[in-house]
Design a protein around this nucleic acid. Structure first.
Lengths: 130, 130
DNA sequence: TTAATTCCGAGGAAATGAGTCGGAATTAAC
DNA sequence: GTTAATTCCGACTCATTTCCTCGGAATTAA
């Protein structure tokens, strides 16, 4: 039960942008990679996901880069994580035995997941820039 | 961010025992495996961890088995999970850059982890037997 | 003695994680 | 129009982790 490094990188990069994208200016990935000491080509993959999730906008070509698609206070950490890893479920157990309602643990896990998601949803990039 | 199947199996097996070990009677792994439809030899590995963590007691030899080491209300789900997987940290990022306090995300992740651990610690086997 | 069990280490197949690589498409600047 | 900087995209690799299995040793009730 831990964050993947891709999720961690995404959060770090998004916080980086939140701190510096006040007027919608874009930052190139090479700049982010250098400043945050992240591997560039991996960051590319990550930002493709962030773009698809419409959390960032891209400017292609020379002097291009990425900028936040919304205000930091309107981007929560759950969205960032899901953009990178997809919606994940604590319970990937899809056996007949369990999905038939015989599993004593399943309801608890859903509750746990909701708790986690609420915490993530309530924490925005703005909360992380202070 | 999901439970490993070993962690899930452990919880399921422990709930099984919580429901039936009222008088400290032991159940063999083959019985648990059959009733809960879990792979036996994998369960063996898992229970070695549970035993080391002193969450269960074992009775060796024929007609042996496992029984809970404490009352269900005194065994919380965090202990079960840690017995199987060890203490895990949301943040395994040990780079100089981050551990020097430059990481904007780290404090949030520790807070998140504490939240999760509290939920797990507050949920005992007794809560899962109803 | 036998059968049922816990205990233990080794190993193995599959999935996942954590990237890299090569190149295509786009665009500003020269 | 060429070049350099960038986003975009798919495929690929390599290491680690997960999810087990296997063989056998130790223990013990019957």
């Amino acid at each position: 039960m831990k964050l993947t490094t891709a999720e961690g990188y995404a959060l770090r990069a998004m916080v980086f942008l939140a701190k510096r994208c006040q007027e919608g200016n874009a930052f190139s990935l090479s700049e982010i990679a250098e400043q945050e000491q992240l591997p560039l080509s991996f960051l590319e993959q990550i930002f493709i996901g962030l773009k698809k999730a419409k959390l960032v906008k891209s400017v292609r070509g020379a002097h291009g880069g990425y900028t936040l698609a919304n205000q930091p206070k309107d981007i929560n950490t759950l969205k960032v994580i899901e953009a990178v890893s997809g919606k994940s479920s604590m319970i990937d157990c899809n056996r007949d035995f369990c999905s038939a309602g015989n599993c004593a643990v399943a309801p608890f896990l859903t509750k746990l997941q909701l708790t986690i998601e609420k915490t993530l949803r309530d924490t925005t990039l703005a909360d992380l820039t202070n």
